[in-house]
């Protein structure tokens, strides 16, 4: 198990190298440098040249990248080139907002999705199934920007139930969390439905019924536990996507999250900050997926056995 975790974490190294290299090269290709965000009225050409040298902009991109990686090797994510605040600190001041919103969204998404999915699966083929499938389709295809504004108009403006954005107090979580959760609800409900459908046909459910297990326990204890793995995967993907932050949702709801931080860093050509944000997001992503993987073992003993035996490939389907 430990070996498995270590191996997964080691995979982070090439990922980080590639991702950061891509960012350095792409941002170097974009017109303008961070200096262009910094120029002020009274700066003389000498001042600008001095700044260019300070940021090594007179040297090739690969030199800057090497320097950055050298710092990274020593655990130093560097400082924002615009504000001079350490990247770690910039990230961490935004991270709690993103983390909290992600957790609330995942909880809302999961709590809604699983009963909906089970409901649809148990009534597969009926009008109820079609209705819920329709709902999830709508949820999946609705742009979150539009939905967010719609919710704002309805619940912040017409009925002034929740604040129209901002990150202050519990009520401010409701609308952004619901908006981002809806997409995940849709995906997870669909996943729950299809994996429940598969499981509902399973022989062991008949065995359970033959033992006299009440129907709700048949579903909850026997069926759901077997359907968990694909559902968990969807939830994990949802969680990791939330953790990367959504610039769109953060913009609509004035949420001080990571998504906007990253987008702004790019628009200011703040390479260190942009790179740091993406690297940290990557790490979070991998960690969440790793946790999901470990949860597989928790819900499915067969996978646990594979981990224990150091199996190379995990099977996602039960």
């Amino acid at each position: 198990m430990l070996r498995y975790i270590v191996r997964r974490l080691l995979w982070l190294i090439p990922v980080i190298i590639l991702v950061s290299l891509a960012i350095y090269i792409l941002m170097d290709l974009a017109p303008g440098t961070v200096i262009d965000s910094l120029i002020t009225e009274q700066m003389t050409p000498e001042d600008i040249e001095k700044l260019r040298q300070e940021y090594d902009l007179d040297k090739p991109v690969i030199y800057r990248y090497g320097k950055y990686m050298w710092g990274l090797l020593h655990g130093d994510l560097g400082r924002s080139q615009v504000t001079g605040i350490s990247v770690w600190e910039s990230f961490m001041t935004r991270f709690p907002a993103t983390l909290k919103l992600s957790l609330v969204s995942v909880v809302i998404g999961t709590v809604l999705a699983i009963p909906i999915g089970i409901f649809a699966a148990r009534r597969a083929g009926t009008i109820w199934d079609n209705l819920t499938t329709g709902f999830t389709l709508i949820g999946q295809s609705m742009p979150s920007f539009w939905l967010g504004l719609l919710l704002l108009i309805a619940f912040a403006y017409k009925i002034q139930l929740f604040p129209a954005g901002g990150y202050r107090g519990p009520s401010s979580y409701v609308l952004p969390a619901v908006t981002s959760a809806l997409m995940m609800t849709a995906l997870t409900a669909r996943q729950t439905r299809s994996s429940m459908l598969e499981v509902l046909r399973a022989d062991y459910l008949r065995t359970a019924r033959a033992k006299g297990v009440p129907e709700r326990l048949v579903i909850r204890r026997h069926a759901l536990k077997n359907a968990w793995i694909p559902i968990l995967t969807t939830i994990g993907m949802g969680m990791s996507r939330f953790l990367a932050g959504s610039a769109v949702i953060e913009t609509v709801f004035s949420w001080p999250g990571i998504g906007r931080l990253t987008v702004e860093a790019v628009s200011q050509r703040d390479v260190t900050l942009a790179c740091g944000c993406v690297i940290l997001t990557c790490i979070l992503y991998v960690i969440v997926l790793l946790i999901v993987d470990l949860l597989y073992a928790f819900v499915d003993p067969r996978i646990k056995a594979q981990y224990a035996s150091g199996g190379r490939r995990r099977k996602v389907t039960a």
């Binding site: 022989d203 062991y204 008949r206 359970a208 536990k225 077997n226 499915d300 003993p301 067969r302």
Partner: peptide, 11 residues
């Protein structure tokens, strides 16, 4: 049941 491979709950 007939098939012992599928009639037990795997988890």
């Amino acid at each position: 049941f007939q098939d012992p491979m599928t009639s037990l709950n795997p988890v």
